[in-house]
Design a protein around this nucleic acid. Structure first.
Lengths: 102, 102
DNA sequence: CAGAATCCATTTTGATACTG
DNA sequence: CAGTATCAAAATGGATTCTG
């Protein structure tokens, strides 16, 4: 057994999905509100720059955790919500929360 | 509900315990080998500096995840192993691994 | 509004040399 | 051997301005 077992293991991928200064909080809001508009999300999280928020959302979208829904018109509306896969994280995050509290 | 719910939640603490470039790999080795000597651990993980490895181990020790055992003599021997609390992470990490692989 | 672009600050990690 | 100390590099995050 050596370190290379690690490069592509699921644990590494999974931790990547939730690492990033604001990702757990994004998940928190999406679990709580179901669907959340970009600007509302942004204003709920003081001190994130929109750049970083966007980067995090893009990554989470690529990883299949969340989905982006765009409503055409002016002004533009963009909403984010958890994918089915993202919702599967629920019990795991709950377990982590419990672990961290114990 | 706002972002302050987050500052001290267990999830944040738990993620902190496993975030750090090498922490998951440290856990991986300790779960696998039970007890591991500092230098062996270091040589198993190319490209970590001893400085960073030490920092990670110290943090994990402070957080109660691992324990340090020192055997007096020359040369000095220091071993690390999971604490009881650390071992509780096992099923959670397994779930994350499975999630990441799916 | 929802970002993209640019530039800067902070944090994290690594390389190397040194010590008890 | 098991670290520290110091410095440099890289990664991450933030502030500001601009655009369709």
């Amino acid at each position: 057994m050596d370190y290379k077992d690690f490069e592509n293991c699921g644990l590494k991928k999974a931790l990547n999905m939730v690492s990033g200064k604001w990702k757990p909080m994004i998940l928190h809001f999406l679990f709580h509100y179901g669907e959340y508009r970009f600007n509302d999300l942004w204003r709920s999280m003081p001190k994130v720059s929109k750049k970083v928020l966007t980067e995090h959302l893009r990554q989470m979208e690529e990883q299949g955790l969340i989905k982006r829904r765009e409503v055409n018109g002016f002004p533009l509306e963009v909403y984010y919500h958890l994918s089915e896969k993202g919702r599967e994280l629920g019990p795991i995050l709950a377990a982590l929360d419990e672990f961290g509290n114990s």
